[in-house]
C-alpha cells in the first residue's frame, strides 16, 4: 500500500475514534474537498475561465466544510453566508493587487522544475494566480466564520434577548480571542511550505532588495497576506450576518405572536 493511503487510513481511524460519526463526516468532507480542488485544476487546464471555476468551486467547498462538520442550524447557515460574502470581497482585493504585482506563473527559481515543459500553453497565469490565492484561503475563511458564528450562537443561547448592538460587540470580542491563534495557524502553515524557498534565498545570497521584489517571494507573501485579510474581514462580516439573521428571526417571531394574539 502506498504511504498516502496508509496515512489516510490512520487519519480516518483516529477521526472516527475521537469524533465518532461527526469525525467520519469531516473526513469525508476532506476527501470531497480534495476532489473539488483537483476538478478545479483540470477544468482550468481545459481552459474554462479560472475565476468562474474558482468562485463555483469555492462556494461548494465552503458549503461542504461548514455543513458537513457542524450540521444545519442557524450558526452554520450564518457562517456559510458570511464566508460567501468574504469570498466575493476577497476577489475584489486579490484581482487588482495581482494585476499590479504581476507575480503570476513561475520565477527563475523554478527553472529546474520547468525543464522540458512548455510554458507557452495559452492559459492565463494571471487568472491562475488569482485562483490559487483564493483557493489557499478557503479553509481559513470557513474555519474563522464557523468559530465566530458558533461563539455568537452560544451567547444567543445563554442570553436570547441580547440586543443587536451588544451582539456586534460580542462578535468582535469572539474575534479577538481567535485572531491570535488563527494567525499562527496561517503563519506556520504557509511558512512550513516556504521553508525550502527561504533556505534557497539565503543559500544563493540574494540581497534584501532582490528578495523583496522577487516574483516567487512576492507571490507567496501575498498569499499569506490575502489569507490574513480574509480572516480579519470574516469577523465583522459574520457578526453582521448574525445580527441580520437574529433581527429577521425576531421580527418573524413578533409577527407570529401578534397574529396569535389577534386570533384570540
Amino acid at each position: 500500500m502506498s504511504t498516502i493511503s496508509v496515512l489516510g487510513l490512520v487519519l480516518l481511524l483516529l477521526m472516527a475514534l475521537v469524533g465518532g460519526k461527526a469525525g467520519i463526516q469531516s473526513f469525508l468532507a476532506l476527501i470531497l474537498n480534495f476532489g473539488l480542488l483537483f476538478l478545479a485544476m483540470v477544468l482550468v487546464a481545459f481552459q474554462f475561465p479560472a475565476l468562474t471555476v474558482t468562485l463555483v468551486v469555492g462556494l461548494l467547498v465552503l458549503a461542504l466544510t461548514i455543513f458537513m462538520s457542524s450540521g444545519d442550524d442557524l450558526s452554520s447557515t450564518v457562517a456559510f453566508i458570511a464566508s460567501a460574502i468574504v469570498l466575493v470581497g476577497l476577489i475584489l482585493v486579490i484581482v487588482p493587487v495581482e494585476h499590479w504585482a504581476m507575480a503570476q506563473g513561475f520565477g527563475p527559481e523554478d527553472s529546474e522544475d520547468l525543464e522540458g515543459l512548455s510554458v507557452l500553453v495559452g492559459v492565463s497565469f494571471t487568472q491562475v494566480a488569482i485562483a490559487t490565492a483564493i483557493l489557499s484561503t478557503l479553509g481559513a475563511i470557513a474555519e474563522a466564520a464557523m468559530a465566530i458564528a458558533a461563539g455568537l450562537g452560544e451567547i444567543l443561547e445563554q442570553h436570547p434577548q441580547v440586543d443587536t448592538k451588544s451582539l456586534l460587540r460580542d462578535g468582535i470580542d469572539v474575534g479577538k480571542q481567535i485572531i491570535g491563534t488563527t494567525f499562527n495557524t496561517l503563519f506556520f502553515g504557509f511558512f512550513g511550505g516556504f521553508l525550502a524557498l527561504f533556505i534557497w534565498f539565503t543559500g544563493v545570497h540574494y540581497s534584501f532588495g532582490e528578495i523583496l521584489n522577487d516574483k516567487v517571494f512576492v507571490a507567496e507573501i501575498l498569499m499569506i497576506l490575502f489569507a490574513m485579510v480574509s480572516v480579519i474581514l470574516t469577523v465583522p462580516i459574520t457578526t453582521w450576518v448574525m445580527t441580520r439573521a437574529v433581527t429577521g428571526q425576531r421580527r418573524h417571531q413578533a409577527a407570529v405572536t401578534a397574529k396569535k394574539d389577534e386570533q384570540k
Binding site: A131, T132, T137, A147
Partner: peptide, 24 residues
Amino acid sequence: STIMGPLINVLFFIFVADTFPMGI
C-alpha cells in the same frame, strides 16, 4: 471533534492549493 475537521481543511488548502499553477 467539532473544530478538528475545519482546521485540517485550513492546512490542506494551504499545502495543496500552492501546487495549482505547476499542476496546470
